[in-house]
Design a protein around this nucleic acid. Structure first.
Length: 218
DNA sequence: TACCAGGTCCTCG
DNA sequence: CGAGGACATGGT
C-alpha cells in the first residue's frame, strides 16, 4: 500500500524537486556549504510553523554563515516570523555548536552515529534530525511529519497513533532510498492540495480509491 | 474569533 | 511510555 501511495502521488503531481528554497535547488545534486546551512536553518524554523513564515525569516537573515549567526543577538529578531523565536534561536546556536565538532558538514555526514548525536541537541527531535540528514546531508532517513501521519492514518496504512520510528521503518522497508526525498515532498503537496486537516477534498483525490477515509466520507 | 501551520521539551501519572 | 501544556507568528 505504501508503494501504491507513492506511485499514485507521483503520477498526480510529478517530481517535486525538494528542498524548496525559491526554486534554487530543483536542478542541483550537490549543495554548497551555504546551501546546506540554509536547509538546516529551514528545518529548524519550520517546526510547527507555516513554510511561508519560514521563508520570510530566511529572507531576513543577512547570511546563512554559521560563524556569523552563532550567538548573534540579532538572530531572534531576524527569525521572528517563524514563531517560537526564542526557542529556535537557542536551537540554532546549539546546532551550529554541534556541527563545529566536525571539520565540514560533509565529514559530519560520514559519522555513522550522527542521527543519535543530533537527537541529543536540545531542540532537535526526530523530524528535524531526519530533515537535516536527508535534505542537507543526503543520508537515507525518511522524514515523518504531521502530513505523513495524517495521510497514512486516513488511508488506513497505520493506526491513528503510531510512533515516529515505527512509521519510518515501514517506509524504509517499502520505498527505495533514492526516493525518500521525493516521497516526502509528494506527501506534503498532497496534504496541502487534498488531505487537509479540516474538510479534506476527497472527491477528486488521487488516493480515494485506496483510502479508508475517503470511502466513508463522500 | 478560532484554528492551523512540514515540532519539541517538560512535567506528571 | 502517553497525555497535556508551553512555546509565538501570520494567514484564513
Amino acid at each position: 500500500m505504501i508503494s501504491k501511495i507513492y506511485t499514485l502521488l507521483y503520477q498526480q503531481y510529478g517530481p517535486q524537486g525538494w528542498w524548496p528554497i525559491q526554486g534554487v535547488y530543483k536542478t542541483k545534486k550537490e549543495y554548497t556549504a551555504q546551501e546546506r546551512w540554509e536547509i538546516i536553518l529551514g528545518a529548524i524554523l519550520t517546526q510547527n510553523a507555516a513554510w511561508k513564515n519560514v521563508e520570510k525569516a530566511l529572507q531576513n537573515l543577512p547570511t546563512t554563515d554559521p560563524q556569523v549567526l552563532k550567538n548573534n543577538p540579532q538572530v531572534s529578531t531576524w527569525i521572528r516570523s517563524a514563531g517560537y523565536f526564542n526557542q529556535k534561536t537557542k536551537t540554532i546556536n546549539s546546532t551550529i555548536a554541534f556541527f563545529q565538532q566536525y571539520p565540514t558538514l560533509q565529514e559530519a555526514a560520514q559519522d555513522k552515529e550522527l542521527r543519535q548525536k543530533l537527537l541529543q541537541v536540545k531542540g532537535i527531535g526526530p523530524e528535524t534530525a531526519d530533515s537535516i540528514l536527508l535534505y542537507a546531508l543526503q543520508q537515507p532517513y525518511f522524514v515523518v511529519d504531521t502530513y505523513t501521519k495524517r495521510i497514512f492514518a486516513r488511508v488506513g496504512v497505520t493506526k491513528a497513533k503510531v510512533g515516529y520510528e515505527k512509521i519510518q521503518q515501514q517506509i524504509h522497508k517499502k520505498i527505495d532510498t533514492k526516493n525518500f526525498n521525493e516521497f516526502h515532498a509528494l506527501l506534503v503537496e498532497h496534504a496541502k492540495r487534498h488531505c487537509t486537516k479540516q474538510n479534506p477534498r476527497c472527491t477528486d483525490c488521487p488516493l480515494n480509491r485506496v483510502c479508508t477515509y475517503a470511502k466513508t466520507h463522500k
